[in-house]
Write a protein that binds this DNA or RNA. Sequence first.
DNA 1: CTTGATCTTCCAGCAACTGGAAGGATTAGT
DNA 2: ACTAATCCTTCCAGTTGCTGGAAGATCAAG
Lengths: 130, 130
Amino acid sequence: MNIGTAARRSALPAKTIRYYEEIGLLRPARAGNGYRDYSGDDVHRLKFLQRARGLGFSVEECRQLLSLYGDTHRASADVKALAATKLNQIEHKIAELQSLKKTLTHLVQTCHGDARPDCPILDELSGASD
Amino acid sequence: MNIGTAARRSALPAKTIRYYEEIGLLRPARAGNGYRDYSGDDVHRLKFLQRARGLGFSVEECRQLLSLYGDTHRASADVKALAATKLNQIEHKIAELQSLKKTLTHLVQTCHGDARPDCPILDELSGASD
DNA sequence: CTTGATCTTCCAGCAACTGGAAGGATTAGT
DNA sequence: ACTAATCCTTCCAGTTGCTGGAAGATCAAG
């Protein structure tokens, strides 16, 4: 099938699919007219990528996952380790964002937000407490 | 003062400071030897940037904040609006990550994580439920 | 036979830096 | 005065993960 169809089936933009090919994540066949020709397996791979990227795995991690996926003898522990690491990173990121949220919430609440020129948010950013 | 000192005082790498200059966020003086010469105000500006970036404001948003900061007649409402928008984005991002976390937690828990080759994580990614 | 959609490649750019090379200036130590 | 280490300069390239656009081929429909 052509790239447009593969794009629809995998829920990935055609541009992204070409990019994934460029960085070696898949190698679709070519039809006689030079068009890329995607097999069901290729689409499967693309969906896998779409899901894994959506779960926050980096492209390099996706590459690892794909190779683990392709390796019928891999241990599930390897995959679990990768997922656990990613989970940790995500938790870390959440904690970080929650701390940002707390600070910003405080700032927004403190700011009277009218036409007056004094603003606690800028005061804080400018280091009024230094 | 030289860039190294400004870097230490603002907690920003020298490279980043030069980059901020390149994109027009500040314009330090130059000493006779061609070295950048940072004033206390420059460092203040750099600290402001360091804090605002740390709070998740994009460089462009920082530029806005700086111009609002420099404008003695601005309304605090303008700043508040910017901060509130950012707060919203952060909350959105947190929700997204929490959803990822939930899915990944589930996957990691389901995976037995031993030497056996079957792995629920890869099954899920490969779309076993399709 | 033409129109419009789809495909191809290539080149460029986004954010926000970061790294490194090549070379000039300064400072500390002898 | 000389040398070595450190710091400064500029410039160019790379990172991540795409995305946009131009120019040109191909295909499908009417």
